[in-house]
């Protein structure tokens, strides 16, 4: 009971037979969606980005543990997570940055590149939604620091067509680091 309440809805599986081939119209549309999204976020067009979200959004980033090879599938924890968001809380995160003068964690803002690769698109059985897996390497430069904070992750998204346009309905962010190597996840992944 508690686990069900604490944990996000399980994502549908990525079934090989449902793979939408690279280069197809749908694949290209998804790719454009991800590229455009990255551009909006990199350029602080957060209000515009928020319009890409569905009202039933689930947006999560599980914790990770170092465990043995045989326990590789047990390295994620989805009760306490780094991000555990819904539509309302994501809008609050956006508003904190766009509507206040004191979101110091990102003011002045980091210079960020969201490098999106390894994109795979799947049809979902009994649904018109698309499941999209992608790699994201976020590079974050803060102040005059001469190093970059790197946030590599895999994203499992559910995209849904609403009024003809693709929207983000689910995102699960699987981070590589057990101990996150940047002072906060005040940036959108």
């Amino acid at each position: 009971m508690l686990q069900q309440l604490l944990e996000p809805t399980p994502l549908p599986p990525s079934i090989k037979a449902n793979r939408i081939p690279s280069g197809s119209d749908t694949y290209n549309e998804v790719l454009d969606f991800l590229y455009d999204e990255a551009e909006m976020l990199d350029n602080l067009r957060l209000g515009e980005w928020a319009e890409l979200l569905t009202k039933d959004l689930e947006y999560n980033a599980p914790l990770r543990h170092t465990r043995s090879t045989s326990q590789f599938d047990q390295t994620y924890s989805r009760n306490v997570q780094h991000l555990h968001e819904n539509y309302g809380s994501m809008l609050m995160r956006v508003k904190r940055i766009t509507d206040t003068k004191s979101a110091w964690g990102e003011d002045p803002p980091s210079r960020i590149k969201r490098l999106v690769t390894n994109v795979r698109v799947y049809r979902i059985d009994d649904s018109d939604d698309l499941k999209v897996e992608s790699y994201l390497l976020l590079t974050r430069s803060r102040f005059d620091f001469d190093y970059f904070d790197l946030i590599p992750c895999v994203r499992h998204d559910i995209l849904r067509r609403e009024d003809g346009a693709l929207k983000l309905a689910r995102r699960e962010i699987l981070l590589d680091q057990v101990v996150i190597g940047t002072p906060n996840l005040g940036v959108i992944l």
Binding site: H84, R93, W104, G186
Partner: peptide
Amino acid sequence: GVQLLGTSGMVEQD
């Protein structure tokens, strides 16, 4: 707790 505190917490990121 996750939204306000810790890694992504809107309070503690500052």
